[in-house]
Design a protein around this nucleic acid. Sequence first.
DNA 1: CTGTTAGCGCATTCAT
DNA 2: ATGAATGCGCTAACAG
Lengths: 333, 333
Amino acid sequence: MATIRQVAMRANVSVATVSRVINNKGYVDANTRKIVLKAIEELNYVPNSVAQVLAGKKMKVIALIVPDISNPFFAELAKAIEEQARQKGYTLFLCNSSEEEQKEFGYIEVLKSKSIDGIIFATHHLNEAMLDHCRDLPVVLMDRAWIKQSLNKDTFVISARNQRGVQLAIRHLLEMGCRKIAHIYGPQQVITARERRLSYQKEVERFSWYSDSLMAPGYFQIEGGRKAIQALLKKHPDIDGVFVGNDTMAIGALKGLHQMKIEVPHQVAICGFDGIQMTRMMEPELTTIAQPIEAMGKKACQILIDLIEGNKKPKQHIEFDVQLIVRGSTKRR
Amino acid sequence: MATIRQVAMRANVSVATVSRVINNKGYVDANTRKIVLKAIEELNYVPNSVAQVLAGKKMKVIALIVPDISNPFFAELAKAIEEQARQKGYTLFLCNSSEEEQKEFGYIEVLKSKSIDGIIFATHHLNEAMLDHCRDLPVVLMDRAWIKQSLNKDTFVISARNQRGVQLAIRHLLEMGCRKIAHIYGPQQVITARERRLSYQKEVERFSWYSDSLMAPGYFQIEGGRKAIQALLKKHPDIDGVFVGNDTMAIGALKGLHQMKIEVPHQVAICGFDGIQMTRMMEPELTTIAQPIEAMGKKACQILIDLIEGNKKPKQHIEFDVQLIVRGSTKRR
DNA sequence: CTGTTAGCGCATTCAT
DNA sequence: ATGAATGCGCTAACAG
């Protein structure tokens, strides 16, 4: 690894001049520049980021903290963010918290010590203390990492219109002729799971068939979804539709129904939430409320980088619209 | 962010002493140490990694380069590697090459400039030039990133027993009564795809029913698998079994068969390769040749870190065994 | 056992 | 327009 000094020597100039050329800053004679560039080329010189950081520049690294990268939703999100970051000249640290608060805390310390420039949180353990640890470090909250308005005073938040999505889902199921719609929900400390559950209740509590026992927890996991639908049907054999809090659980629910030899959508219709790619591969294909995952990821990344580079944006909370995608799991007739 | 100097002042010692305490290196009086630790605690001091690196220590960062993180195989791999890295005190850079050679090249430069300590490649564009760019940087090659023996002289390679896996798959399909077994293969510049295809040929060419037209490309993509099976069946309506080069394509193939109203496994049996979680969720569940993805990821990470920290291992190429997991997609009777 | 000091590679005044 | 010098935070001799 060549250093700036070696380049300077080879070009017969001072390190300061080389620095000016590298950063395109300050005056430097056109001819001198040419000579320096040639030396850089010949030595295959690449500035040492570490030294640049110590001298006051940015590391050009951002971090993404997710609960589980093997969950397709977060994998797709990570992909979008990575792509956008790369385009802007940033590299991405991937941090998998495994849903463990302690790990997240640990990561914040490590990341800070490594002089990263900003963090995108897509987890839900985020609390005041954590956010406080990130003081004077740009931060963007995504999806579930959004606790309550009061907390967001200084932080940007990217989320989807959960309530609207649930409305679309329930109304669609009703239109398809469902008369008793159950709900499988995610962990209630997760804002998205809570919002979706509350919205479900709001949409259906006016019906005479509604009861609280139509809701069962699925923990945002495939296996949880499978077990939940089976428990629900045991209690309520006449359920003919189910709105599931995310696609992962919906995949599990579909599995559970198959195991019980219950036909989808004719006996029970299923609608999920998120719009991950895998929903298209199931048999039947899963109807879902799609979030614009890629757009959300890119936006989060864009905002974070704007923040890092000092361009302040006025808007603090951006909500993305969702879309009902009707597929085989709800198509009757 | 407190600095080592501030800690030194508060503890009334020199920076050298603080450094000794931090690094547990050299002599330092028990009592002095206590005082220093207290100062560190009080100031909430965390050493600045960037400065440490510039002064000669490791960054404690490794990078993983994958072709597509939204492919479940790589997501599971990344998760395992991240976990292992974190345990060892390392942080992980996630690099998604999108199968583009140019990006991979770019990443190597960026990563080097950021003083990362090592790279795990799980891509296939890796060539001499690339590996040369990584000179004096520990490197581990995984899965497809394994070009040819001659190249591996100085690099560690982690792979699965592809040929053995294919044998298991074909023999299982034959035992299940298959009389005409097709193959859907991945990109032939990818070593794993090539190995599996060659092994398939080796296993079946002795049969009278075999012909080269029983092989079709699926590009390691879901959609590719779907189209491939449909093309194959058009040419050979009597195909009654298919060995698919990876699970992703197998999921697509299953989809394609459903679309053609062909029953799995009764009319056509399917066996995939990789052992990703999602295979369990399909209907019917997919039989597959499982690689120990997690173990392989952890091992790769472990070796890389050993390499970084100077513990040389004798073995250069580690092959993991694979396992046939029989599920519904091949179970006849 | 502890303190002083010289770099590590680069950006950045401040002179010239 | 260019160069010399200073400092970023830390480690590692070296000296005491």
